[in-house]
Structures are given as structure tokens and as C-alpha cells.
Simulated assay, not measured.
Amino acid sequence: MNASDRTPADLLVSALKADQARPLITYYDDATGERVELSVATFANWVAKTANLIQDALSAEPGDRLALLLPAHWQTAVWLVACSSVGVVADLGGDPADADHVVAGPDRLDDGLACSGGRVALSLAPLGRRFPTPPAGYDDYAVEVPSMADVFVPYAPVDPAAPALTVGGTELSGAEVVDRARADARRLGLAGGARLLSALPYDTWEGLSAGLYAPLAAGASVVLCRNLDQLSPEGLAKRVESERITSTLV
């Protein structure tokens, strides 16, 4: 990645310039059998649309706090980089009552109603399907995001030194996220073309780094596995072989 990259959004721009066709995130849910593979270009398109939703539909501004009540999931990764693109602070598992906006998965909808600002619900269903019935008090992400523009331009420049992420009670700037991600990539031995399998949750820095930031910083890719405990040892060994995994964190 480019040494001048100072935010996660910058890392994605550099990844697009380097090789937009390569896989970035391959997502498995072993409770549903779902498998989704996103190239850099496809992931960036989701990020652009989501950033436009944050900026225009939610009217979020740099410095606003967005509570992300979501598990480790490819759509969570999209929201994390989209927040970075706008300059909004992504607060993983944050208190919705203290947030300007909230994004909630199907098992956190009641909690998210404590937020007095904009609310977006994600079904987290395979293929990004919408809810059968829109959740009361929420906009359905799968309904709203398709109409958003494929190109994102922030209304205000994003300050790399401003708060960008809160996880596990620690607040990090965009520049700190990038620096930590690069250090983790070196520690994990990640380089261009590496494939990291991670089953770590997104409620700690270690999980976020392994499941998104470190592979993005290194020009590598992640195989993000949810409910991996439902996969047999033989099934895991087969996945490691078929996905050409170079390192594993479970």
C-alpha cells in the first residue's frame, strides 16, 4: 500500500489502484452455508454507496458517532470503511443512546431504538436480502443502498488525526488505525497475495484488524468466517486448502 495512506478509506483507494480485480473479503457463515466473495472493486462499490447513504440519507457529518451493532460480517466491513470515507466515528457495539446514528443487525433492533438519530437495519441474510417486513423505526439498508450513487465525494475533507473508530473502549484516529494495521500485517507475515482466515469477532481490535484492516493494509485478503464452530475439523482443513489460506486465526 501507499506510504501516504492515512485513513482506511485511503487504503482502499490504493488497493483499487493496485489490483481492483483481486479478492479482498471472502465471507462464510457456517450456520447458513452462505459464501460471498468480494473483489476490491465490488467492495469499493458497496463502500461508495454506503458512504453516500451515511452522508446524504442520514445527513451525517464528520465527527458524528455511529453505533455499529453488528457482528463480524462482510457488510460490517463495508460500514467501517464507509464511515472512514465520511469522517464519521464507527463505534463497535457502542451505546445507541449516546450515538448520533445507529446501524443494527436483526438481533439488536430493540437496543438500537435508544438512538434518537438516524437508524438503519441490516437483515444480514444471504445475498444481502431485505427484511420481509421493514423493522419499525428503521430504514432497511437493503432497500435504501441500491439507489445510492456508485461514486462518493465527501462534502468535507476527512482529518486523519480525528477520531475514526472506537472498539473495546479504545478510540483511534484514522491514522492510528492505519499504523496499527500495518504493524499487525508485519507481525502476521501478511504480504501481497496472502490469504488470512479469521474467525475472530469484531468486538476487539484484534478481530477488526485480522478481519479487515491488516489484510487491506498489506494488499492481502481475508477469509472471514462466522459460526466456524459449526464446521468439522475436516471441513476446516478442506476450506484452508480450497481457499489457499496462508495463515489462520481462530
Rank of each mutant, 00 (worst) to 15 (best):
R6N: 11
L58Q: 07
T246D: 14
D140S: 07
V47Q: 11
A114E: 13
N52G: 13
G189K: 10
A99S: 09
S39E: 04
L68I: 14
G211Q: 02
P71R: 11
S147F: 10
M1S: 11
P160H: 05
A82W: 06
V158G: 13
A183T: 14
D56S: 11
W46P: 08
L16E: 12
F152V: 08
A237T: 15
A121M: 05
V151R: 15
S242P: 04
D107V: 08
T246M: 05
M1Q: 02
T204C: 02
D100E: 12
C83Y: 00
C83I: 01
L200R: 03
P157C: 02
D56K: 14
C225Q: 07
S84G: 12
L216E: 00
L224H: 08
G63M: 05
P215S: 09
L109A: 06
L11K: 01
D56G: 05
S247W: 00
E176Q: 15
T133N: 07
P134A: 15
D150M: 06
Y155T: 14
V151S: 14
L249Q: 13
P126I: 00
W46V: 09
R239F: 03
L190H: 08
Q230E: 14
R6Y: 01
S84D: 14
P132E: 14
Q55C: 02
L68C: 12
G219K: 01
L165T: 11
N2Q: 12
P8I: 00
S247C: 12
F152I: 07
L53Y: 12
L200K: 01
T76A: 14
D95I: 04
A162P: 06
A125H: 04
C83G: 15
P157D: 10
